[in-house]
Simulated assay, not measured.
Amino acid sequence: MGGDGVGTDGPLTGPQAFLVVNLIHAAILSVIASRSALRGWRLAILVWMTLFFAQSFLLMMEAAYFRDSLQISTALLLEGCLHVLIGGAMIGAAVAMLWRVPAERSTFVPEPKTLPIRLAVIAALYVMCYFAAGYYIAWQVGDVRQYYSFGEDIALAPLLLFQVLRGVMWGFLAYLLVRNMVGSVSSRAVIVGMSFSVLAAAQLLYPNTIMPWEVRFPHLIEVGISNFVFGFAASKILLACRAEAAAVSSTDIVGQAT
């Protein structure tokens, strides 16, 4: 916590951000664990994967894509991924030990046969959320436009393909979460949206020398909103048909009983 970039750049100092961010992460992981249909090592793996991909890997992918423009070293990116890779495994093990009470069985899960089609739709949805939030929220701030002044030189087609790939990966993470949760479609969708929003955006509270607060704050709002909307909608897409099937089945049972 005493390294470069730890100061008062923003509303929180480094140690304050460390406490706040980890408390927020602990809260969302507690919700995931309490609503999960998994226990033991399976729950540990789910928590580890959620942390690693939502908090680190998928974000580091984008940082790596713009690495030369942002002047971020490869060593720094690898260090960040390794930190969450190891720390996430420890946190997953801790969660598995804390939540030992037998969980409910998931009432309905996404249809695996149509998963590729759903992931394709979700990837397109992610690209829409990414560019819409980026333009209508972050890009409206002068400091953000100045910080990303290199944006005019970025080739659009490769960037679109790259974001489609990230959208598929985000969609698959949503699939893992909703498939292993209990509760209604809407409650699962809210939890996934909150998870994607909080785990990706909260760490922007950390002071650093790479991205000033005047740029991080618009990004915090942008990522927080777009990831929640995307996670919520992606979960609805993944669970839509099974929810309808469950509703029809319940109606048939009631009809037979009467």
Rank of each mutant, 00 (worst) to 15 (best):
T74D: 12
A37G: 13
P15E: 14
S197F: 04
L51I: 08
P158H: 07
R67E: 13
K113W: 06
Y206W: 12
A245F: 04
L51A: 03
G10Y: 06
A17S: 11
H219E: 14
A189I: 09
R145V: 13
L115C: 10
L160Q: 07
L119F: 09
F52V: 03
L177F: 00
D9A: 15
C81N: 12
L19N: 06
V144A: 11
F230D: 02
V229L: 13
R35A: 03
A138P: 06
W213R: 10
I117C: 10
P110I: 02
V185R: 02
N22K: 06
T13K: 14
S197Q: 03
S56E: 08
T50M: 06
G255Q: 13
I225C: 09
F162S: 05
S235D: 01
R216M: 14
V164F: 07
Y147Q: 08
L76G: 05
G5I: 12
E79K: 12
F66K: 02
Y147W: 13
F196S: 00
K113P: 01
Y206Q: 02
L239R: 02
M181W: 00
G92S: 09
L12K: 10
I45H: 00
T114F: 13
P212L: 12
V178C: 01
R39N: 10
V20C: 07
R179T: 02
F230C: 04
F108L: 11
M181R: 01
G3E: 13
A155F: 05
I86Y: 09
Y147R: 11
A64R: 07
Y147N: 05
A257L: 13
L204S: 02
V190S: 02
A240Y: 06
A93Q: 08
R105H: 13
D4H: 13
G151K: 02
A234M: 01
S226N: 09
A33V: 08
L177I: 01
A44K: 00
S184N: 09
R105W: 05
A138Q: 07
V144G: 06
L43K: 01
I253Q: 14
A155Y: 07
I253E: 15
S56A: 15
L12T: 10
L119A: 03
F196K: 00
A89E: 05
A189S: 14
D68K: 11
G167N: 05
V95E: 01
V223E: 02
A17Y: 03
L176G: 00
A103S: 14
V109T: 09
T8D: 15
H25V: 14
I86W: 08
A64S: 11
L204M: 14
R145L: 12
S34G: 08
L46C: 01
V254R: 15
L156A: 12
G92A: 09
G171D: 04
F18S: 05
M181V: 01
G255A: 15
V101A: 14
S187K: 11
A246Q: 05
G142S: 15
